[in-house]
Measured scan of single mutants.
Amino acid sequence: SEEWVEIALRLLELGREANINGTILNLHKEEIEELIRRLLKRI
């Protein structure tokens, strides 16, 4: 399964939302940290 691709796409999506909203992603901080942890486990 290409889970890391899904994770990377989700991170990009959150990054785009952050640019549009001008936020520092506090809302998504925990989700982002969890996604990155899952991503690093696969490398």
Results as ranks from 00 to 15, higher is better:
Ser1Arg: 12
Ser1Pro: 07
Ser1Thr: 10
Ser1Tyr: 13
Ser1Gln: 14
Ser1His: 11
Ser1Leu: 05
Glu2Tyr: 12
Glu2Asn: 14
Glu2Trp: 15
Glu2Asp: 05
Glu3Gly: 10
Glu3Ile: 11
Glu3Arg: 12
Glu3Ala: 13
Glu3Tyr: 09
Trp4Gly: 01
Trp4Ser: 01
Trp4Gln: 01
Trp4His: 00
Trp4Asn: 00
Trp4Asp: 01
Trp4Met: 05
Trp4Glu: 01
Trp4Pro: 00
Val5Leu: 13
Val5Trp: 14
Val5Asp: 04
Val5Ser: 03
Val5Cys: 13
Val5Tyr: 11
Val5Arg: 05
Val5Pro: 01
Val5Ala: 04
Glu6Phe: 12
Glu6Ala: 07
Glu6Met: 15
Glu6His: 12
Glu6Trp: 14
Glu6Cys: 12
Glu6Ser: 05
Glu6Gly: 05
Ile7Leu: 06
Ile7Asn: 01
Ile7Thr: 01
Ile7Cys: 15
Ile7Gln: 03
Ile7Gly: 01
Ile7Tyr: 03
Ala8Thr: 06
Ala8Pro: 01
Ala8Arg: 02
Ala8Ser: 07
Ala8Gln: 03
Ala8Trp: 10
Leu9His: 04
Leu9Ala: 05
Leu9Trp: 14
Leu9Lys: 01
Arg10Gly: 07
Arg10Ala: 09
Arg10Leu: 13
Arg10Met: 13
Arg10Glu: 08
Arg10Tyr: 12
Leu11Asn: 00
Leu11Tyr: 01
Leu11Gln: 00
Leu11Met: 02
Leu11Asp: 00
Leu12Pro: 00
Leu12Glu: 01
Leu12Cys: 11
Leu12Ile: 06
Glu13Arg: 06
Glu13Thr: 05
Glu13Tyr: 04
Leu14Ala: 02
Leu14Thr: 01
Leu14Ile: 13
Leu14Ser: 01
Leu14Lys: 01
Leu14Met: 02
Leu14Cys: 11
Leu14Gly: 03
Gly15Arg: 03
Gly15Asn: 03
Gly15Met: 15
Gly15Gln: 08
Gly15Ser: 08
Gly15His: 09
Arg16Ile: 12
Arg16Phe: 13
Arg16Leu: 14
Arg16Lys: 10
Arg16Asn: 03
Arg16Pro: 03
Arg16Thr: 06
Arg16Gly: 02
Arg16His: 08
Glu17Pro: 09
Glu17His: 10
Glu17Val: 09
Glu17Lys: 05
Glu17Asn: 06
Glu17Thr: 11
Glu17Ile: 09
Ala18Cys: 15
Ala18Asn: 06
Ala18Met: 10
Ala18Glu: 02
Ala18Thr: 12
Ala18Val: 12
Ala18Gly: 06
Asn19Ile: 15
Asn19Phe: 15
Asn19Ala: 13
Asn19Ser: 14
Asn19Lys: 07
Asn19Trp: 15
Ile20Glu: 05
Ile20Thr: 12
Ile20Gln: 08
Ile20Met: 06
Asn21Ala: 03
Asn21Trp: 15
Asn21Phe: 14
Asn21Asp: 09
Gly22Lys: 04
Gly22Gln: 11
Gly22Tyr: 07
Gly22Ile: 14
Gly22Thr: 12
Gly22His: 09
Thr23Asp: 11
Thr23Gln: 08
Thr23Cys: 15
Thr23Lys: 07
Thr23Gly: 11
Ile24Ser: 10
Ile24Gln: 07
Ile24Pro: 14
Ile24Arg: 06
Ile24Phe: 09
Ile24Thr: 09
Ile24Gly: 09
Leu25Trp: 06
Leu25Pro: 10
Leu25Thr: 14
Leu25His: 05
Asn26Trp: 15
Asn26Asp: 13
Asn26Gln: 13
Asn26Leu: 14
Asn26Ser: 07
Asn26Arg: 04
Asn26Val: 13
Asn26Ala: 13
Asn26Thr: 06
Leu27Gln: 11
Leu27Val: 10
Leu27Thr: 08
Leu27Trp: 05
Leu27Glu: 11
Leu27Asn: 10
His28Asn: 09
His28Lys: 03
His28Glu: 07
His28Ser: 10
His28Asp: 03
His28Leu: 14
Lys29Tyr: 14
Lys29Gln: 11
Lys29Trp: 15
Lys29Ile: 14
Glu30Met: 08
Glu30Ile: 12
Glu30Tyr: 04
Glu31Tyr: 07
Glu31Pro: 05
Glu31Asp: 07
Glu31Ile: 11
Glu31Asn: 02
Glu31Gln: 08
Ile32Arg: 01
Ile32Pro: 00
Ile32Glu: 00
Ile32Lys: 00
Ile32Val: 08
Ile32Asp: 00
Ile32Gly: 00
Ile32Gln: 00
Glu33Phe: 06
Glu33Arg: 12
Glu33Gln: 08
Glu33Asn: 14
Glu33Val: 13
Glu33Asp: 10
Glu34Pro: 02
Glu34Gln: 05
Glu34Trp: 11
Glu34Ile: 05
Glu34Ala: 03
Glu34Arg: 07
Leu35Pro: 00
Leu35Tyr: 08
Leu35Glu: 01
Leu35Trp: 08
Leu35His: 01
Leu35Phe: 04
Leu35Ala: 03
Leu35Cys: 15
Leu35Met: 09
Ile36Ala: 02
Ile36Phe: 09
Ile36Val: 04
Ile36Met: 05
Ile36Asp: 00
Ile36Thr: 02
Ile36Arg: 00
Arg37Ala: 04
Arg37Asn: 04
Arg37Ser: 05
Arg37Ile: 12
Arg37Gly: 03
Arg38Leu: 08
Arg38Trp: 13
Arg38Thr: 08
Arg38Ile: 06
Arg38Met: 06
Arg38Tyr: 11
Arg38Glu: 10
Arg38Pro: 01
Arg38Ser: 05
Leu39Val: 14
Leu39Asn: 00
Leu39Thr: 01
Leu39Met: 05
Leu39Phe: 09
Leu39Gly: 00
Leu39Glu: 00
Leu40His: 06
Leu40Arg: 01
Leu40Ala: 03
Leu40Phe: 05
Leu40Ser: 01
Leu40Ile: 08
Lys41Asp: 15
Lys41Glu: 10
Lys41Arg: 04
Lys41His: 10
Lys41Ala: 05
Lys41Gly: 05
Lys41Trp: 12
Arg42Met: 15
Arg42Leu: 15
Arg42Ile: 15
Arg42Asp: 10
Arg42Phe: 15
Ile43Asn: 02
Ile43Pro: 06
Ile43Gly: 04
Ile43Leu: 12
Ile43Lys: 02
Ile43Glu: 01
